[in-house]
């Protein structure tokens, strides 16, 4: 084993060339060529990246010291139109991907909680004729009905998922307690309701409904009325 001692600013001590190894002068030449190639490469990459980048700068908007000016005729009409679209009362917002729920009143957040939205799973009837995708729909909805102690009328997919035959007798579809204390109906079978599985809140586990924890559900149920907007994104 040969050790080489290098000192900054000085050439290494000469080492006798052994058969099959590069002579010191040749090795130096190879090093110079490799170094030059690396530097040239860096120059090219630098020029390319400088030519194809973006110049970023902090953007500051000066404070409007004069405040909002008085609207003129055209602006007044547009403002009136805009104000007409905005809900005046409390509304419910659901983030179906991050499993969050809010009760809002304009810029004010009254409550913020976790929920469980649709799992996104796909179920196909063993006959192959029907397919269900368990997504929570996106868009603007409104509370169509409010119910305390709701009863779940199990749809076909609930039986198929469990490998059970779909009953002909409607009374066999009724299940008590599954939906928690309250349910807010949004239409097309979708609801905001309670859950027996609070430990799974924050995860996407439902068949499309929005499951909410008991305490948050109590506040939402109390604040919402029939017609309250529900925004799901």
């Amino acid at each position: 084993m040969t050790s080489v001692h290098l000192r900054w600013g000085a050439a290494p001590d000469p080492v006798p060339a052994s058969p099959g190894s590069l002579a010191p002068s040749r090795a130096r030449r190879v090093g110079v060529v490799l170094g030059a190639l690396l530097a040239a490469g860096l120059v090219v990459v630098g020029i390319v990246s400088m030519g194809a980048q973006y110049t970023y700068g902090a953007l500051r908007i000066p404070a409007d010291s004069a405040g909002t000016p008085e609207p003129d005729g055209e602006s007044r009409k547009l403002l009136a139109k805009l104000r007409k679209t905005v809900p005046k009362e409390a509304y419910v917002v659901i983030d179906r991907t991050n499993n969050r729920i809010w009760l809002r009143r304009g810029n004010e957040i009254e409550i913020e909680g976790i929920c469980s939205a649709g799992s996104g799973h796909v179920l196909t009837d063993p006959t192959g004729k029907r397919t269900w995708t368990f997504d929570t729909p996106q868009g603007r909805f409104k509370v169509r009905q409010k119910t305390a102690d709701p009863v779940w009328k199990k749809p076909d997919w609930a039986f198929i998922e469990e490998g059970k035959p779909v009953p002909r007798d409607p009374s066999e579809r009724i299940e008590y307690g599954t939906l928690g204390e309250y349910a807010l109906y949004l239409g097309d079978g979708y609801m905001i309701h309670g859950t027996l599985y609070e430990r799974l809140l924050g995860r996407s586990v439902s068949h499309g409904c929005v499951r909410v924890g008991r305490d948050d559900l109590r506040v939402i149920y109390k604040a919402a009325r029939v017609g309250t907007p529900v925004f799901i994104f």
Binding site: A39, V45, G46, S49, M50, T55, Y56
Partner: peptide, 22 residues
């Protein structure tokens, strides 16, 4: 040459922050 190259590269990579007129 390497120093110039490195400076160019870092300047290009960083996006050369400048002030932007409001």
């Amino acid at each position: 040459l390497g120093s110039v190259a490195l400076a160019l590269t870092l300047c290009g990579a960083g996006g050369c922050s400048r002030s932007v007129d409001a």
